[in-house]
């Protein structure tokens, strides 16, 4: 790491050669800002190359919305996600639509409520993001922060420190800051519960 100022990746020390992540749900679930925070945490916090894009137009305001993040330690030549290594799906519609695009060796992290019949060939794990958000925070909107924490703890694609830092930055002075930080920590906790089956990308 440059300057030696950054925490190194938690799991493994290897270089990443193009990992594609799609966070998907419906408009209004905070999908796009979740993608931005994740991208920023990896790009600036973890100092990796990141290209992040998202759905635009009417799709972004309703229906199936998605934010794509491509992570690599090399150059990102192709900034679109044709095949996914990691899919995070918050709704049934999103799961149905994108599960089949997830690589066989990839992983689908879906909200419990999003999966009815398993779809695609990748391993799907169901996590109660929305339920936890409702129960422990009485607001479903922090479900995406729980998911970010989970993603970090479970896959190591982003370091927990960078994630907390970026949320601290973005919500500095905001009344939502503490809840978001707690939600991320809740995500770390959930990840430890699922740790047995964890896939390591780094």
């Amino acid at each position: 790491m440059k300057n030696g100022t950054k925490a190194t990746a938690k799991k493994g020390t290897g270089k990443i050669n193009r990992v594609t992540i799609r966070i998907s749900g419906s408009g209004g679930q905070g999908i796009i800002s979740t993608g931005m925070l994740l991208g920023e945490a990896i790009a600036i916090g973890d100092e990796r190359n990141v290209s992040q894009s998202q759905s635009y137009g009417p799709e972004a305001r309703g229906g199936a919305t998605c934010a794509d993040i491509i992570v690599s330690d090399g150059e990102i030549f192709f900034p679109e996600c044709n095949l996914l290594d990691i899919l995070v799906a918050f709704t049934y519609e999103a799961y149905e639509k994108y599960a089949s695009l997830t690589r066989e060796k990839g992983i689908i992290i879906a909200d419990q409520s999003a999966v009815d019949v398993l779809s695609g060939t990748a391993e799907t794990i169901k996590v109660p993001f929305i339920e936890t958000a409702r129960e422990k925070f009485s607001k479903s909107i922090v479900a995406n922060m729980i998911a970010l924490g989970f993603l970090s703890g479970y896959t190591g694609i982003v370091t927990g420190g960078s994630l907390l830092d970026v949320v601290n930055d973005h919500y500095a002075g905001s009344k939502h800051r503490d809840a978001n930080i707690r939600a991320i920590n809740e995500g770390f906790k959930l990840a430890r519960e699922y740790a047995g089956s964890a896939k390591v990308f780094i």
Partner: peptide
């Protein structure tokens, strides 16, 4: 559009 909308460092 890709460069305009894409986020990078």
């Amino acid at each position: 559009e890709l460069i305009g909308h894409m986020r990078e460092k």
